[in-house]
Design a protein around this nucleic acid. Structure first.
Length: 116
RNA sequence: UCGGAAGGCUGGACGGUCGCGGGCUGAUCUUUUUUCGGAAAGUGAAGCGCGAGGAAAGUCCGGGCUCCAUGAAGGCACAGUGCCGGGUAACGCCCGGCGGGGGUGGUUCGCCACCUUCAGGGAUAGCGCCACAGAGAGUAAACCGCUUCGCGUGCGAAGUAAGGGUGAAAGGGUGCGGUAAGAGCGCACCGCUCGCGCGGCAACGCGGGAGGCAUGGCAAGCCCCACUGGGAGCAAGAUCGAAUAGGGGUGACUGCAUUUCGGUGCAGGGCGGCCUCCAGCCCGUCAUCCGGGUAGAUCGCUGGAAGGGGCAGGCAACUGUCUCUCUAGAGGAAUGGCCGUCCAGGCGCGCAAGCGCUGGACAGAACCCGGCUUAUAGGCCUUCCGACGUU
RNA sequence: CGGGCUAUAGCGCAGUUUGGUAGCGCGUUCGUCUGGGGGACGAAAGGUCGUAGGUUCAAAUCCUGCUAGCCCGA
């Protein structure tokens, strides 16, 4: 099981924000198919100042990182970029299994949208 | 036992696993250097150990520390503090006491005890304000009333602050005497002011005397008095210091002439789709060194008015002494996710033992301390008050 | 880290200095003028003065603590 590499460049975040998006209670998920030969899954995280102070932002990022490690590795599609965006109060306060459900649901929703 | 008020303490425990930030040890690999033993710089597998708070918050006060300014002392301005004493490095903080207000209980009705609360200097240093109502809101006041006198018999004059009325507040209060009616006009008690004596470091208390006392309230209005305060803040400040573009120095880059071999003087060089001339344009290039300074790096940076325990002093705050411990140090910023067992708490079932489910307040260090304020689930302790029950 | 400002009716503001009546414009509602609309005129309703205390006889105003928002400087 390959660990997803981290998305760091602003260019990649902007590209992801222009493609498909799924909003759930606890977080926002963006997905983009990269048109290159690589099979890598890449994941990025966003926690803006709206989420709270530095401590809350970091907690949101840590929880999202844990989610990505657990779920996107299993359910994500090869050759795609994913961006997880923290939502105010929800990402830091929701129970962990709710976050898991939301992320799975978001992935399914993106798949359906693409099949149509 | 329950409820309320005030104060103090605490702020879930143990383990596993995957991660994160520092520290120590340090495999491996890379580069440089070498007297071939090694050394230095980097990389950093792995191991060991450490890793948020009582408020880390608000930034409301006080300090340490650093830089800047500054002869000393005093004054002015501005700001702050404000019963007295103590504690402290210091404070607007803390402790104790005094005085006033409120509550409860007791009482020999004189007071006493306990709890609680107070921004608690000065209103005879001065200025100012006190709406509306009211006659009058402060250097003395007459609207109604009361009393006396006068006559024109319902008006005038004089006296009067006892009563009415207005108001938040009406020029000490109650009683007796006194009087034409009244009034500190006189007296007693209470209150106030000013001396005296005693006690207390003091705030103040007690006793006794004098003054009839025109001294209302507001200083969180101006102000007066006493005391305190230089300014800025770790992005303080210190050291090192790249690339690029400026500044300065030296040498070379060409040729020729001259020379006392150190130099000196003269000629400049480059550019345009081929050459020459004229005109025009651009100005040195390279190497090396120096200095300021940016990014960046390092230090400041965590051992301190530190914490635990014993003893001693003190009513207490706190202090002294002995001993033990070392306990975050990042730089957009680490301290988290998951799982298991248990402990408070909540819900449901059950006569009960118990079982099942749920589930952890406020909140996250950024130079460091002492306080204050604000947020805070649950638990523990102390004091006071109330209710019920038992003896 | 340091300093400052604001909060008043649905909206925008005055009143705070020097404490006693909360007001202005737009908007809302009702009525009149008009055949109707627009417009004009007249009238009315509407405010815990951000919050919690304190000083005072009396607080939007004075003092203190909080809350929210905004703006500067390093």
């Amino acid at each position: 099981m390959p660990t997803p590499s981290r998305l760091k460049k602003r260019r990649d975040f902007l590209a992801a924000s222009k493609s498909s998006k799924a909003v759930t209670n606890s977080l926002i998920l963006q997905e983009r198919r990269r048109d290159d030969d690589s099979l890598l899954i890449r994941v990025g995280f966003t926690a803006s100042k709206k989420v709270g102070n530095a401590v809350l932002r970091n907690r949101a990022k840590r929880r999202m990182r844990a989610l990505a490690q657990e779920i996107i590795v299993k359910n994500g599609k090869r050759g795609h970029d994913y961006v997880l965006i923290a939502r105010k109060n929800a990402t830091t306060e929701s129970p962990y299994d709710a976050l898991q459900r939301d992320l799975i649901k978001g992935l399914e929703r993106l798949n359906k949208a693409k099949c149509r």
